[in-house]
């Protein structure tokens, strides 16, 4: 979708054409002024409400606020990926996207797995034995 606007000869069928393109542009897609402005405005529109919600506390239930704030952050990360990091499925023949997906899976496993395991470990500890967890540093 965004790759169409760059048009740096990614559609050239021959390998040599690709190499020329890569030589010049490093294989990564480029943004235009318009793209940067869109990305910037979207990030402002996503960041400001997150801060606003938490700082003013309009929603009485903090869990609802937390959910909205997390959702906004997820969307903003995708916006940054597309408009600032120029991620698409075409650059470097899709290898950057593959690496990104792989990393995202690992990140998900590490974070969700740690929280899950440690939460249950804390629960299963006797209150008297919990001292090590809460006072021990890194």
């Amino acid at each position: 979708m965004s790759a169409d606007t760059h048009g740096h000869g990614h559609d050239s069928a021959h390998g040599h054409g690709h190499h020329d393109a890569h030589d010049h542009h490093g294989g990564a897609a480029h943004g235009s002024r318009r793209e940067y402005w869109i990305g910037f405005l979207l990030s402002v529109l996503l960041t400001a409400p997150a801060f606003g919600l938490v700082m003013t506390g309009v929603i009485s239930d903090p869990r609802v606020t937390a959910g909205i704030v997390m959702a906004l952050a997820m969307v903003q990360i995708v916006v940054h990926m597309i408009y600032f990091l120029h991620m698409n499925t075409k650059s470097e023949n899709g290898w950057t996207m593959l690496a990104l997906i792989f990393t995202a899976i690992i990140v998900l496993i590490v974070i969700a797995g740690s929280l899950w395991v440690m939460y249950h470990m804390n629960l299963n500890m006797m209150p008297g034995m919990g001292g090590e967890m809460s006072s021990g540093g890194m």
Binding site: H22, A28, T96
Partner: peptide, 15 residues
């Protein structure tokens, strides 16, 4: 094939 210097830099940096 021609391998111009830096042809794989961007992928490497991404990794």
């Amino acid at each position: 094939h021609e391998h111009p210097p830096g042809a794989s830099t961007m992928l490497g940096f991404w990794l």
